[in-house]
Design a protein around this nucleic acid. Structure first.
Length: 353
DNA sequence: AACCGGTCCAACCGCCCCGTA
DNA sequence: CTACGGGGCGGTTGGACCGGT
């Protein structure tokens, strides 16, 4: 037996566009009572709508954290890149774009981005050049084939994710992970370095750095200019990490980030080693007495531990202007081999999580 | 001014998955 | 195990809007 059915939804329900009065009622209700059982919202809010309609209206229009206005070039590139990896999984794509809805992205894709890619000679379905005559290139993938593709994904099909401007960004830098595939058997692993390729060539249209993960999309919203002779990402914002920064983790990710290391001092996780995240936010504070200002600072994440998925392979990348995509130059298994080596001393540390 | 075709997007529809009893 | 309802998701649609004739 499910939940008791409501006679309310048997009444004549309104459809179509929402009036400002209806918006106001729904907004008032959510503001007052929060998001709960959508099926009971129409009755409680005095709306002649079905619960689903209310939910949709809230998610796609009334939600206060929605970003209005047209998509930026960066956002469009993210969508194209993520679509290459995820296909029409709009909700997962939307999860990488704060303030944007799956519906909005879907509409943008169908009305604009598809055409844009075709104009560039790229098949919007396969994200490969349209010149190929191989019929297998254009066929719809089966679910198994999709999974195989996700498992052995190449950089031409993966993401180029933005590193936003520190200098102009008043918000604390954040880092988010979203799960793209789920390992059949959860694997506890550790790795000793964030998989940021310091030698990445910057996107000619922006300062994006591709952060690639074989099984996950790593979206890194920290702005940095890539310095090719450096092992790390130099942070240009003078007061970056001055007080605290945070890490947003999605998809019930469990893991921890021990510390950032900067020339001016270490950053340690204030919540300690047992920190777990479930769609939560971790906060870090600077262990050094004060951070120096001015100039570039290198930072590195150390001892990043995850469970339930494999640590990514590490790729060298280059941006191809012709193909408008990132190309894998070479691949190192250093991290994946480390990650699966349970004799690695850091593995014990991870086991404590 | 009226008509027409194309574009865009808000909202609906149908399906699926999950939790509950 | 089954039935049922809620919620989420992707595909589709209908109407508003706009530019051209």
């Amino acid at each position: 037996m499910g939940r008791p059915s409501s006679t309310y939804n048997k009444q004549k329900l309104r459809k179509g566009l929402w009036s400002p009065q209806e918006d106001e009622k729904l907004m008032k209700h959510i503001t007052q009572f929060g998001i709960g059982c959508w099926s009971s919202v129409p009755k409680q809010a005095g709306l002649q709508r079905c619960g689903k309609s209310c939910r949709l209206r809230w998610i796609n229009y009334l939600r206060p954290d929605l970003k209005r206005g047209s998509f930026s070039h960066q956002e469009e590139n993210i969508i194209i890149s993520l679509h290459a990896v995820l296909g029409n999984r709009w909700s997962q794509i939307a999860a990488q774009l704060p303030g944007r809805t799956d519906n909005e992205i879907k509409n943008l894709w169908n009305s604009c981005l598809k055409k844009k890619l075709i104009q560039q000679g790229i098949d919007p379905n396969t994200h490969k050049t349209l010149t190929t005559n191989d019929p297998s290139e254009n066929q719809v993938l089966t679910k198994n084939q999709q999974n195989q593709k996700l498992q052995s994904i190449s950089m031409t099909e993966t993401s180029q994710l933005p590193i936003n401007s520190f200098t102009n960004n008043p918000n604390p830098p954040s880092l988010s992970l979203s799960k793209k595939t789920i390992s059949e058997t959860p694997i506890s692993i550790s790795a000793n370095c964030l998989n940021v390729n310091p030698h990445s060539v910057t996107d000619p249209y922006s300062n994006w750095v591709p952060l690639f993960h074989r099984d996950f999309v790593l979206s890194h919203q920290i702005q940095a200019e890539v310095r090719e002779d450096s092992g790390f990402l130099p942070v240009t914002e003078s007061n970056y990490c001055e007080k605290s920064t945070s890490m947003v983790i999605e998809d019930n990710f469990s893991g921890k980030l021990d510390k950032f290391v900067t020339p001016s001092g270490s950053w340690t996780c204030t919540k300690g080693i047992d920190q777990r995240c479930d769609n939560g936010r971790l906060t870090y504070s600077n262990s050094s007495s004060s951070s120096s200002n001015g100039g570039n600072k290198d930072f590195q994440s150390e001892n990043m531990h995850f469970e339930g998925f494999k640590w990514p392979e590490y790729f060298e990348l280059s941006f191809s202007e012709n193909l408008n995509s990132w190309q894998k130059l070479q691949c190192s298994d250093d991290y994946s081999s480390l990650s699966e080596d349970q004799t690695d001393p850091k593995f014990d540390l991870f086991e404590q999580i």
